[in-house]
Amino acid sequence: MRRRGRSVLIAAAVVAVVAGAVTVVWRHDLVPLILVESCQATVEDTTVSLDPAQARYAGLIAATAVSRGLPARAASIALATAYQESGLRNLRGGDRDSLGLFQQRPSQGWGTTDQILNPVYATNAFYDALVKVDGYESMEITVAAQAVQRSAFPNAYADHERDARTLASALTGNSPGAFSCELGATEDGDTELTDSGLTPRAQKVREEVRALFDQPVGGFAPDGVSTGHMEGSAHYAGRAVDIFVRPVNADNNLRGWAIAQFLVSQADRLGIKTVIFDARIWTAGRRSGDGWRDYEPPERAGDSAVLEHRDHVHVDVY
């Protein structure tokens, strides 16, 4: 009986691993749970579920539209296209010489193999072609996508229109707090500070946000000592950065949410632990399943916009 029980447990564990990405997490009462890592976007009555790898690419596609100043419609078209062409995955092959997120072909002038397999390059190449389509903003998604892709199955893009709209609305910031990921905790990274006063993980977050969104990033001093933060803040350990979107207004609120939800979409890749914006907080690990929660800032005198993180996105890493 003892041997049979052990076999059943092993078999169950194998099934769980094969079923998808899993992380073992521990509740406060030390009961182990198997967490299936996933991300969701919910807008009105539609919920879209992605695995963390798909979420990374969806986040990049939407963030690139925001960074280029394109409307959410452009992100919807790009997301529907990537859904149809690759299932939101960076494929190393496809029909004939098709490659990558959008199954672009070197032989059709989209770029070299290495370029197309770079998701940043491929996404910008798609938008470069889309903005040349006159009136794409008012076209049906399937028509606009076909104008760029020239697919043998032009009507197939319509199958993904609803999911693409939902993801685009959430990830471009038009639906605040609508995108979240349920992720297990990540092992702590290198704590040795770089020349910027940040740990390598925090420095990478800073570099990617500045490159993609061209936003001021601060909240730390060159020697790694933060100023203006509560004792115990991750800033003091060089594990946190603040992405400023001041002054507080409707446009910056939308942009702030786009940045915040992009960071959540990249959390497993970048080792992100916490994201705070607009008096809301998301955390990886045990509470990630709660999504975006109300954030209660420390009680102290000061500017409420700063305390509630309404003029900047705070992110810290493991």
Rank of each mutant, 00 (worst) to 15 (best):
A258W: 02
T142E: 13
D268A: 12
P176V: 06
V148F: 07
A185D: 12
D290W: 10
A221W: 02
T112L: 03
R300N: 06
G184K: 01
D195V: 08
S169D: 13
S86Y: 04
I281C: 02
G87A: 07
L171R: 08
D316Q: 04
L263H: 00
P176Y: 05
L307R: 14
L307P: 06
G94S: 09
F262H: 15
Y318V: 09
E208Y: 10
S180V: 07
D294H: 15
A63P: 03
L193C: 01
A147G: 12
D29N: 15
L79P: 03
V148S: 07
Q115E: 15
R162N: 13
D290M: 11
N253F: 11
V43A: 05
L30H: 15
F179S: 01
L307E: 09
G5E: 12
D303H: 09
V25N: 12
I281N: 00
T64F: 04
S151D: 12
W282E: 00
R293Y: 05
N118V: 04
E140M: 10
S49Y: 13
G285I: 01
S196I: 00
L193H: 02
D97H: 08
V18E: 13
E44P: 12
I272M: 01
S233R: 00
P106V: 09
D195T: 10
T46F: 08
E231P: 05
N124Y: 03
E85V: 09
R286S: 10
S265K: 03
R287F: 14
P297C: 07
Y136Q: 05
S265N: 04
R68Q: 11
D242I: 02
R92E: 12
Y318E: 12
C181F: 02
R210N: 12
D51V: 10
V120T: 13
R286E: 12
V225Q: 03
A144C: 07
I34W: 11
I116D: 02
G87C: 06
T42M: 03
A221E: 11
S196H: 07
P154L: 00
I243Q: 04
V15L: 13
G109C: 14
L183I: 05
G87T: 04
F244S: 12
R287C: 05
V315S: 03
V143I: 14
E207A: 12
S265I: 04
L307W: 09
E44A: 15
A41R: 10
L307Y: 08
D251G: 06
F179C: 01
T64W: 02
T123W: 05
R269M: 01
A211Q: 08
S304W: 13
E44H: 15
E140K: 13
F220C: 02
E140N: 13
A53I: 15
A21D: 14
L30I: 14
F262Y: 15
G5Y: 09
L70E: 08
A53P: 08
Y157H: 05
S233Y: 00
H28T: 13
V15M: 12
T123K: 05
